[in-house]
Amino acid sequence: MLPKVKKINLSTQLIDTITALIESGEWELGMKLPNEIDLAASFNVSRNIMRESMKILENFGILESKAGIGTFVSETALSSIHNMRFFDNLKNNSSIENILETRLIIEPELAYYATLRSTEEDLTLLKEIFERNEEIHKENQFTKKDDFNFHMFIAKCSQNVILENLLFSMLDQLRASDYKDFDLHAQTEEVKDSYSHHREIAMAIINRDPLLASELMYKHLFSRINAINSSYNKDLTDSKKIESKRLANKK
Score class of each variant (00 low, 15 high):
Met1Asp: 11
Met1Thr: 12
Pro3Phe: 14
Ser11Ile: 07
Gln13Ser: 12
Leu14Ile: 05
Ile15Lys: 04
Asp16Tyr: 02
Thr17Lys: 07
Ile22His: 11
Glu23Thr: 10
Glu23Val: 09
Glu23Ala: 14
Glu28Cys: 10
Glu28Phe: 15
Met31Ile: 02
Met31Arg: 10
Lys32Gly: 09
Lys32Ile: 04
Pro34Ile: 01
Asn35Arg: 03
Glu36Asp: 01
Glu36Tyr: 15
Asp38Cys: 03
Ala40Arg: 05
Ala40Tyr: 00
Phe43Ile: 06
Val45Arg: 13
Val45Leu: 10
Val45Ile: 11
Val45His: 15
Ser46Gly: 15
Ser46Val: 10
Glu52Val: 11
Ile56Gln: 13
Glu58Asp: 09
Asn59Cys: 07
Gly61Cys: 04
Ile62Gln: 07
Glu64Ala: 10
Gly68Trp: 10
Gly68Cys: 12
Ile69Tyr: 15
Ile69Lys: 15
Gly70Val: 03
Gly70Asn: 13
Val73Tyr: 00
Glu75Ser: 12
Thr76Ala: 11
Leu78Ser: 13
Ser79Gln: 07
Ser80Met: 01
Ile81Pro: 03
Ile81Lys: 00
His82Cys: 02
His82Ala: 01
His82Gln: 05
Met84Trp: 03
Arg85Ser: 09
Phe86Arg: 14
Phe86Gly: 02
Phe86Val: 07
Phe87His: 12
Asp88Met: 07
Leu90Asp: 05
Asn92Met: 04
Asn93Leu: 05
Ser95Asn: 02
Glu97Gly: 01
Ile99Tyr: 08
Leu100His: 08
Leu104Pro: 01
Ile106Ser: 10
Glu109Ala: 11
Glu109Asp: 08
Leu110Cys: 14
Tyr113His: 12
Thr119Asp: 14
Glu120Phe: 11
Leu123Ser: 08
Thr124Met: 09
Leu126Thr: 06
Lys127Cys: 10
Glu128His: 03
Glu128Ile: 02
Glu128Thr: 05
Glu128Tyr: 00
Ile129Val: 11
Phe130Tyr: 11
Glu139Pro: 02
Glu139Ser: 14
Gln141Asp: 15
Lys144Asp: 13
Asn149Ser: 03
Asn149Ile: 04
Phe150Gln: 01
Ile154Cys: 05
Lys156Asp: 15
Lys156Ser: 12
Lys156Ala: 15
Cys157Met: 15
Asn160Ala: 11
Val161Met: 10
Leu163Tyr: 00
Phe168Ile: 13
Ser169Asp: 05
Ser169Gly: 14
Leu171Ser: 09
Asp172Thr: 05
Asp172Asn: 08
Leu174Trp: 09
Ala176Tyr: 12
Ala176His: 08
Ser177Met: 00
Ser177Leu: 01
Asp178Cys: 02
Asp178Asn: 04
Asp178His: 03
Asp181Ala: 05
Phe182Leu: 13
Val191Asn: 08
Asp193Arg: 01
Ser194Val: 01
His197Phe: 15
Arg199Met: 06
Ile201Leu: 13
Ala202Leu: 07
Met203Lys: 12
Ala204His: 10
Ile205Asn: 07
Ala213Ser: 05
Glu215His: 11
Glu215Ser: 11
Leu216Asn: 03
Tyr218Asp: 00
Leu221His: 09
Leu221Phe: 08
Phe222Tyr: 06
Phe222Asp: 01
Arg224Cys: 00
Ile225Ala: 02
Asp235Ala: 04
Ser239Lys: 06
Ser239Ile: 02
Ile242Thr: 06
Ile242Lys: 01
Ser244Val: 03
Lys245Met: 08
Arg246Cys: 01
Arg246His: 10
Leu247Cys: 10
Lys251Val: 04
